[in-house]
Amino acid sequence: MSHSVRVDGQEAQAPHTPEPQAGSVWKARWRQLLLGVELTRNLAVRDVETRYKHSILGLYWAIINPLVTAGIFGFVFGVIFHESSKPIPYVVFMLTGITFWNFFANGIMSAVGSVSGNASLLAKIYFPRIVLPTAAVLARFIDFMFSLGVLIVFILLYHTPICWSTLWIPFILVLQVFFTLGIGYLVAALNVLYRDINQLMGLLLLVWMYFSPVMYPITNLKPSLRSILLMNPIGSILQMERDVIFTGHLQYPQFAWGAVAWTAFVFMAGISLFRRIEPMFSEVM
C-alpha cells in the first residue's frame, strides 16, 4: 500500500545472535543479587563498627545526637517562639520529625563520600560499586533504629497517645529508604567527579530541613503554602510518618502518591546516573 507504512515482517527482525538460556541468566542474576545483599550487609555493619570503635560512648552517640538536636530546637522553637503542635507535646512532635529527618540527612551525608572514600578498595577488587552508597545508607538505618528507641521513650514519658496505624511505619520507611538511596546514589557518583558535592549537600540539607515539616506543624497553614511544602517528597514522607503515629490517618493522602512517584523517579535516576558515571571512577580516583 503506502510506502510509508512499516509493513514488512522481516524488516522488524533484528539480526539474531545466539543468547544464553533465560533460566541460567536469571539464576546467575539471582546469585549476583544474593552476593550483593551479603556484601551490603557486611559493609553496613563494618561502617557502624568502625564509626563507634575506640570511642568512649560508642553507640550512645546514635542516641545523644538526636537528643541534643531536639533539645536545642525544642528550646528555640518551643520556649522562645512558642511553637505549638497541640494536641501532641511539642518535644515529642519535634523529636519525631528530627528522628526521621536525621536518618535521611545522615544517610545522604554518609553516601556522599562512600565511593570517593574507598578508593583503595575499588582499586583492589571488582564488585558492583553501587553497594558502597547502599551500605552507607543502611548503616545510618542501624543508627536510626537506636534513635527510634529514644523517641519511644519520650512518647511514653509524655503519655502521648499513639494509634494502631503506627503499624504502617515500616511501609513508609521503605519509601524513605528508597528515596534516601536514590539521592545517595546521585551524590555518591557526582562526588567522585566534583568534591564540592560534599560541602554543597551539607548546605542543601540545612535549607531542605527548614522547607520540610520537621519542626513546625503545617496543618493550619494556607492550603497553597502547605501544598508547596508537601510537594517536597521528604516533607510529605515526614508528615505521613507523624500522621500514622499520632493522628491515625493520613491528613494529606494525595501528597503521599506524589511522594511515591518522586521516590520511584529519584531511585531510578540515582541508579541511572550512578551506572553512567561508574566507568569513570577508576580514571578519576
Binding site: W257, G258, A261
Partner: peptide, 9 residues
C-alpha cells in the same frame, strides 16, 4: 502528578 495534586489542593 505533583502538578495535578497542586491543582486539586
Amino acid at each position: 502528578v505533583s502538578a495535578q495534586i497542586l491543582r486539586w489542593s
